[in-house]
Design a protein around this nucleic acid. Sequence first.
RNA 1: GGAGGGGUGGGAGAGUGGUUAAAUCCAGCAGACUGUAAAUCUGCCCGCUUCGGCGUACGUUGGUUCGAAUCCAACCCCCUCCA
Length: 381
Amino acid sequence: MSGFSFTLTATDGWARTGLVSTPRGDVRTPAFMPVGTAATVKAMHPEHVKETGADIILGNTYHLMLRPGAERVARLGGLHHFMQWKGPILTDSGGFQVMSLAKLRKLTEEGVSFQSHIDGSRHMLTPERSVEIQNLLGADIQMVLDECPPYPIERSAVETSLDLTHRWAERSKKAFEEYGRAGRALFGIVQGGVYEDLRRRSVETLAAMDFPGYSVGGLAVGEGQGAMFDVLDFTTPYMPQEKPRYLMGVGKPDDLVGAVKRGVDMFDCVAPTRSGRHGQAWTKEGPLNIKNAAFAEDAAPLDPESPCPASSRYSKAYLHHLFKAGEYLGPMLLSWHNIAYYQELMAAMRAAIAAGRFADFEAAFQERRSKAVRDGSGPDA
RNA sequence: GGAGGGGUGGGAGAGUGGUUAAAUCCAGCAGACUGUAAAUCUGCCCGCUUCGGCGUACGUUGGUUCGAAUCCAACCCCCUCCA
């Protein structure tokens, strides 16, 4: 329990399982990190997030710097104490918001200046400030500020963006060495769009800076699952073996399975919580929309075998009713169920890799989903 | 019995001669959501449709008009006040 480290315990093909150790606790990989942007995994109690098996959650630099403010969080004892999450926290740098809030921002060599979406106030986020904020928050794993290019975009623009991202990575690292505390880690972010040579260049450039972990960014932005897997196929094999690999912002259950197969160790995605708030449940048989009339009198729970109360105790008919009635409990229960399902999926993958049966796992995973569709018993039938 | 107001698509409720198959909201039916400006957004929602249209429609019946949910008449219902 002293510093930050990563230990691989087993591999199966490109798939790996292991342990990320931080002073605040271990993270079993492959890991799914629920997203808690604004110091909360939306609609979830932190205790329940923990009970699903989540070892680590995300926070966000951009959102927290605007509200309630990084310095305020620091005065209140740091993000962990503030939101009562005892385990490790990974914070995003705000790099993704550089892209998604395009209308409100201006990008320069120095950093990104933008207007708050909340009150219109003007702010400047630089690689140095981003790292400073992440340390004020007390994040265990921090991310370099990067530029996440949209898709589609021409190659030359990706290349220009990539060079900037690399210069920012360098500055982020320097700042981290100044602000960072022992036991905390700063990850580099591999960019390069869908171009093999650019991804390779990005991996090599960042590896030379020797980060304790590496992210793959700029995926799941519209290129499609096939293209995303192609990028992983020609990217992860060149990433340092002994360092954790984090695929940012991904994904749906089948994305996770495909990415683990290609050597990814860590994930985060808003899918389970956002779609949970919107009525979509992820199950072993695939996704279903609990608002559909078909569930109005379905007395079965989402998963009778799950240890999660949200999955096993309440009928689909009840969940359906809660959503139709606009009751808060509906989004809460479905978010809980989805996070639990995601964690169960990750645990199953870890076990399969450890047992050297990942291919069997993947086949069974796909078979159960397609069988449900074929039988008409599945949600998509 | 007298005076007044009103009857519009599943509900509420605009519209008061053509651009109206008829605003808007709700309900209903589906879809989307991938480092969270999202408890959000989108589509459909009279019938049929080869998705271009076609057919019926604004209490009922009749009339005026090139043309009516909109004007006129009668009738049928509903509401308020006075007896």
